[in-house]
Design a protein around this nucleic acid. Structure first.
Lengths: 206, 206, 206, 206
DNA sequence: GATGAATGAGATTTCATTCAT
DNA sequence: AATGAATGAAATCTCATTCAT
C-alpha cells in the first residue's frame, strides 16, 4: 500500500534521526532523554522512530558506533599528511585545541561518549563496544609511538600503552570537567600543556 | 520498633544507609538505581529511608558532599608528613597507585563522583557543588606548586592551575576508563608515569 | 490503538473524561478520589488520562472552569427572555427550584463547586479562580438590581452587592446541607421562600 | 510501672489535643492535615495522640460533636435573657455579626464544620451526626418561631422549618464564601440585611 | 504511660513500546 | 509506511498506624 522508498532516503532519515537523538542524549543524558524528546526534536512520529530502530537502546548503541567511527576517521585524516611520529603526535595533541572543533555537535559527541562509559557496566554489549573503542584509540597512538621508537625519534624504553592510555584519560577527564565549568574552561592551554609534557617525556633528545 | 534513640544511633543508621545507597548508585548509576534497590540492599523499609532523607536526590547530594570531604581529608592527611613541595606532589601522585586504596568502596566512590559530573548540567545545585569540589581539589595542588615555586623547587613560569586541572582530568578520566576495563587496568604504572611526567615538567633542575 | 484521530474525537474523549472525573470527585471529594477511581470509571488506562491532562489538579481546575462557564451560561440563557428586572430576578430565584435541573450531573456539579471553596485556601490559583467566579455570579445579580433601581422597580437605597452575596450564600449553603439530607430536602419551597423574601425586600411598593 | 495520672489531667490533655487538631484541620482540611501536623502543633508525641484517640477519624468525629455542642450552648446562653420571640431571633441574627465572635478559633470551628458536610457522604456515621446537628440548630429556631406565632408576634401561615433552614443555609454559605474572600468580607452588613429580611418576612405588622 | 522509628500499602506520575487505522 | 493514542509496569514519595524500648 505504501510506496517503496529508496534506500538512500531511508538512510538519510536514519542519520537525521541519529543526529537529533544525539542532541537529546547530550542535553539530558541517556536515561533522562525520552523518546518523546527525540520525536519532538526530529519532527518524526513515534511510529517512524520505531521503524528505524527497535528500541531506545538500539539508537544509543548505533550512535556510539558511529561516533567512534567518525572521531577515529577524523583523527586518521588529520595526521595523514604528517610524516614524522613527533609531528603526528603533536597534531593529535593539538587537534582538540583547534578552535574549529569546538562546536556544539562535537561537544555533544563527547558528552555522549563519556556517558557510554558510565553505562557500560550495566550492559555487556555496551561494555564490549567501549572496550573495543578504547583499544582502537589507544592503538592508534601506540603505533605512532612504536614508529617513533623505530626511527629513533622516541626513547626506546617508554611504554606506548601507558602514554596512550594517559592521553585519552586526560582527554575524557577534561571533557568531564568541561560539563561543570562550561564557559571559561581553558581548553587550548590545557591541551598544549599536556601535549608538551608528553612529547617532552618521550622524545629522545633531552 | 523504636522509642527515643540516641543521636549516634540515628547517625549510624544514616551512614549505613548512605553506604548502601552508594553501592547501589555505583552499581547502576543515579537514574537507574531505584529506592527499592536501596531498600533491598539496606534491609530497611521504604518509609525508613524517607525518615532519614527527604528524597532520592538528597541522598545523592549528601553522598557527594561526604565523598568530597572524605577524599579531600584523606589527601590532606597523606601529605601532612611531607615537607618539600616535590615530595608532597609525589605523594599525591602515588596515593592512588597505592594498592591499599583499591578496594570496592573506594572504587564505588569514584564511580559515583564521575557520574556527578554527568548529572551536573541537569541540576544547578549539583553543578554548583561540583564546581566547588573542583576548586577545592585544584587549589590543593595549586598551593603546593606555589610553595614549590617560592622555595625554588619548581620553575617560576609554570601555570599551577593548568597543572592541577590536567592532573585531576587525568585522574577522573582514568576512573572513567576503569569502568570498562575493570580487572587488568594498569593503575599503578599509569599514575607513576603521569606523576613522573608532571614532576619532570615543573621541577627546576633535573 | 489509534492513529491520527480528529480533534473532535479527542475533545469528545476529554469531555468524557471530565464527566467521569466529576462523578468521582462528587462522590468522594478531590482528595479522596484517586486517579485509579477515575481510570476505573472512565474505562481508560492510567496513561490515557495523563495524555489528556497533565495532573489530577489540572483535571480539577479544568472542571471548575467548565462548571462555572456552563452554570453561568445557563443562567444568562434563562433570563434572556424576560424584560423587567423583577421578572429576571424571579426567574433566577426559581431556576434552581425547577425540577428539571435536579438531576445527578447537576448535583455533582454543585458538590464539586462547593468543595472548590474548601480547597481554595490551599492553592493561590484556585483561590483566584473562585474569587473571579464569585464576582461573575454576584455582578450578574447586581446589574439586574441596578437596572431595577433605574427603572423604578426597586428601592433606591438597597445595596445590590449585599443582596447578591446573600443570595449566593444561601444557594451554596443549601447545597451544602443537601449533601447530608439527600432525599427529602425541600428544594423548591426553600427557593421560593427566599426568593419572595428578597423580592419583598427590594421591590418599591409594599 | 507508670504513675496513674488523674482523670482531670487526661481530660485536659485531650482537650488541648482537640484544640490543636482543630487548628490543623481548619488550616489544611481533614485529608491534607496529617497526624504529624497535629503532633507538631500540640507538642505531644505520636504515641500520646494514639493514647487519647484511636484514629485520625476519631479525633475528627469528637471534634464535630464538641463544636456542635459548644456552638449550640453559646446560642442558647445568648438568647436566654431575651423574652419576646422577635428579640430572640434578632439576637440570633446579630450574634455572628458581633465583632467579639470573629476570632480565629471561631472561624476555624466553622471552617471545620463546613468540611464535615463535604465529608458526610463518605461516612454513614458522620452523615448521621451532621443530620442530627442540622436538626438541633433548625429546631432551635423553629421553636422560637412557633412561640412567636402563638403569642401573636409572627404571622401564622409561615413555615418555621423553611425559615430556619434558609437561615442556616445562608450562614454556612457565607462561611464558605468567606474562605475565598478572607479580608474584606462584609460580615456584619450581610447578617443585618438577611436578619432584617427574615424578620420582615415573618413579623405580623408591616 | 510515653516515645518516635519503623512499616508498607497506596497515591501520583512517567515513559518505552505497541498496534489499529 | 506512517501515525500517535493507548497501554501498564514501574518509579518516587506519603502517611496513618504500630510497637519495642
Amino acid at each position: 500500500m505504501a510506496p517503496k522508498v529508496s534506500e538512500e532516503y531511508k538512510e538519510q532519515k536514519r542519520q537525521e534521526l541519529l543526529r537529533n537523538a544525539m542532541a537529546c542524549f547530550a542535553e539530558k543524558g541517556y536515561q533522562a532523554a525520552t523518546i518523546d524528546d527525540i520525536v519532538a526534536r526530529s519532527g518524526m512520529s513515534k511510529g517512524a522512530v520505531y521503524n528505524y530502530f527497535s528500541s531506545k537502546e538500539e539508537i544509543y548503541l548505533t550512535m556510539l558506533k558511529q561516533a567512534t567511527d567518525r572521531n577515529f576517521k577524523m583523527l586518521k585524516d588529520e595526521i595523514g599528511k604528517h610524516v614524522s611520529a613527533g609531528e603526528k603526535l603533536e597534531r593529535i595533541f593539538n587537534i582538540y585545541s583547534d578552535i574549529s572543533y569546538i562546536k556544539q555537535e562535537w561537544l555533544d559527541r563527547h558528552r555522549v561518549q563519556i556517558e557510554f562509559y558510565m553505562n557500560a557496566p550495566r550492559s555487556e554489549e555496551l561494555n564490549e563496544r567501549m572496550r573495543e573503542r578504547g583499544e582502537i584509540f589507544r592503538s592508534f597512538i601506540v603505533e605512532i609511538i612504536e614508529e617513533g621508537k623505530l626511527n629513533g625519534e622516541f626513547k626506546e624504553d617508554i611504554d606506548g600503552y601507558l602514554i596512550a592510555e594517559a592521553y585519552w584519560s586526560f582527554t575524557d577527564g577534561m571533557f568531564l570537567h568541561l560539563l561543570v565549568e562550561k564557559e571559561k574552561y581553558p581548553f587550548k592551554s590545557l591541551y598544549q600543556t599536556v601535549g608538551a609534557m608528553i612529547l617532552n617525556h618521550i622524545k629522545k633528545d633531552y
